[in-house]
């Protein structure tokens, strides 16, 4: 394998990791505040459809992005209503949201476009264009670092850079602000936060809303950046891979970046090669596809470094009387 091939795989890793990263950070906010979110998948899917649909109808990718984020935040509100206000089961609510998105996107897509549950292909301003970083063309011919800069770092859509910036931002918000401290506290010991006179309900809603915004970005990138339009079930389990990455990262932002790059890399390799020959042993492509899930189970089982979720995760908070 030569340098260019490696760069190409890493370049595609970057693209594939972006929706995972955004969804993973979404889950991070929600779960750090004590609200399990297995509805990431559904929110990504809903955002993907509404961003592509609105972009196709309006011709503007920014209107698409707004529509996608609105859809995702709406589903977050449903999740908040069920799991915070009505103290329902957060896991069941997540399952319902996934199905709601899977069904509604196709039913509405068929109604709007009559193309068998797809949107028309997006072109021009209805898609996120690739940004060329400064000097990318001049540096392209420089050996080694040329391709590194002009292929790997330059030439992505703006959402890729937004996603990358979200990592330090999330770290800063969670670990360097008062809001972040309270948000983490509410996921570990909500009664203590309540005693301090801070609203548990409000904090959890805030976290769930942030998760909605980030999933909205993930879905919009999927349908208007990575692909050119929506197709049925296009999230294809990414919400669950993001969930896996979140566990892999043990609910920490920088580790999340590492985890999604690992999982994105696996996907990129699986896309490029049908089977991989490792010194006489042939690894089937299906194994590569299953590897993120297998790794997550291994991590969860605590055989390699134990993953301990936030303590109050999954439990609705009932104020003492």
């Amino acid at each position: 394998m030569d340098w260019i091939a490696i760069i190409q795989i890493l370049d595609s890793t970057m693209r594939l990791a972006t929706p995972l990263l955004l969804a993973c950070l979404a889950g991070l906010y929600s779960e750090r505040a004590g609200v399990f979110d297995i509805g990431l998948e559904g929110k990504i899917l809903a955002a993907a459809f509404f961003s592509a649909g609105a972009a196709a109808l309006s011709g503007s990718v920014w209107i698409g992005l707004a529509a996608g984020m609105t859809a995702s935040v709406f589903l977050s509100l449903v999740h908040g209503l069920a799991s915070i206000t009505f103290r329902g089961n957060q896991l069941i609510s997540g399952v319902a949201i996934n199905f709601l998105a899977a069904g509604l996107t196709v039913v509405i897509a068929e109604n709007w476009f009559r193309m068998g549950g797809r949107t028309p292909s997006l072109t021009g301003d209805a898609r996120f264009q690739r940004l060329t970083l400064p000097f990318a063309e001049q540096l392209a011919d420089v050996p080694v670092i040329g391709p590194l800069y002009s292929v790997l770092l330059s030439g992505h859509s703006i959402l890729v850079y937004v996603a990358l910036l979200c990592v330090p931002l999330t770290w800063w918000v969670l670990f360097r602000t008062r809001f972040g401290l309270r948000l983490r506290a509410v996921g570990e010991n909500p009664a203590a936060v309540d005693t301090a006179g801070v609203s548990v309900i409000w904090l959890r809603y805030a976290a769930v809303m942030i998760a909605g915004v980030l999933c909205g970005l993930a879905g919009a990138y999927l349908a208007t950046g990575l692909a050119a339009g929506f197709v049925k079930d296009m999230s294809a389990g990414r919400g669950f891979i993001a969930l896996a990455a979140l566990i892999f990262a043990k609910w920490r932002p920088w580790h999340a970046l590492g985890a999604v790059f690992l999982f994105g890399f696996l996907e990129a390799v699986a896309n490029r090669y049908q089977s991989i020959d490792l010194g006489g042993v042939t690894v089937p492509v299906q194994f590569m596809e299953a590897l993120p899930y297998i790794l997550t189970v291994v991590i969860l089982a605590g055989f390699v470094g134990r993953a301990v979720p936030p303590k109050a995760g999954g439990a609705p908070y009932v104020k003492e009387r």
């Binding site: 329902g88 319902a96 709601l100 899977a102 069904g103 509604l104 039913v107």
Partner: peptide, 17 residues
């Protein structure tokens, strides 16, 4: 897929809500 929507709503209202 309308059936999937109904299924989701049944899960939502009999389960989570």
């Amino acid at each position: 897929e309308l059936v999937v929507v109904i299924q989701a709503l049944v899960i939502l209202f009999t389960g989570a809500l």
